[in-house]
Design a binder for these strands. Structure first.
Length: 166
DNA sequence: CGTCTTTGACCCGCGC
DNA sequence: GCGCGGGTCAAAGACG
């Protein structure tokens, strides 16, 4: 890629070389911003229904299942000396289920792929993206739907420290 | 030249 | 105590 990166699929101009507009349909849209005290479990059935997959099947494989375990409080910045903030800090999480052929949709930020992993029992490789902007703890996880390869599940984690691509 | 991509290996947390 | 899984980082290479 190496494109400018700053192009919104419905606002900015797309300089992609796809030869066609980013035709993607937002079928499902889940929004999670730190349920500190709320009942994340209530989202579980919703997501399961939206995803059309049994929640009890273990959506953890998708990464979205994390919400089912982290229903407590965050804070407690007691970073003793741990390099990475290996804290169970629940950050903002946004799960988007989009139907598109391209999994790398420009949301207005530059993303740098930092890892690809194949989930066991799944021919769907999981892609890990991170904001190219320094200071942006935002991480993006992209994975294809096992049942519908035409669907892409993008999970955003963190908040952007900048408004634009820079 | 700078930036980003790709693969492998490593590390950590948790479970049993 | 050990194993598994998942997640991250690193280096090199490629491309614009």
């Amino acid at each position: 890629m190496s494109e400018g990166g700053g192009n919104f699929p419905s606002s900015e101009s797309h300089n992609m070389d796809f030869g066609e507009p980013p035709a993607f349909e937002l079928s499902e849209f889940l929004e999670f911003n730190g349920w500190s005290g709320d009942d994340p479990a209530s989202f579980a059935p919703i997501i399961a229904a939206e995803m059309g997959d049994p929640f009890d099947q273990g959506y953890g494989g998708l990464g979205v299942g994390d919400f089912g375990s982290t229903s407590g409080h965050n804070e407690g910045s007691s970073n003793d000396g741990g390099r990475p903030e290996k804290k169970k800090d629940v950050k903002e999480r946004f799960a988007f289920k989009t139907r598109s052929e391209i999994e790398i949709l420009d949301d207005g930020f530059k993303w740098r792929k930092y890892g690809k992993k194949m989930v066991k029992n799944c021919p769907n490789p999981r892609n890990y993206y991170r904001c190219s902007v320094e200071g942006c703890p935002v991480k993006k996880r992209v994975e294809r739907d096992q049942e519908d390869p035409s669907y892409v599940i993008t999970t955003y984690e963190g908040i952007h420290n900048h408004q634009g691509p820079y």
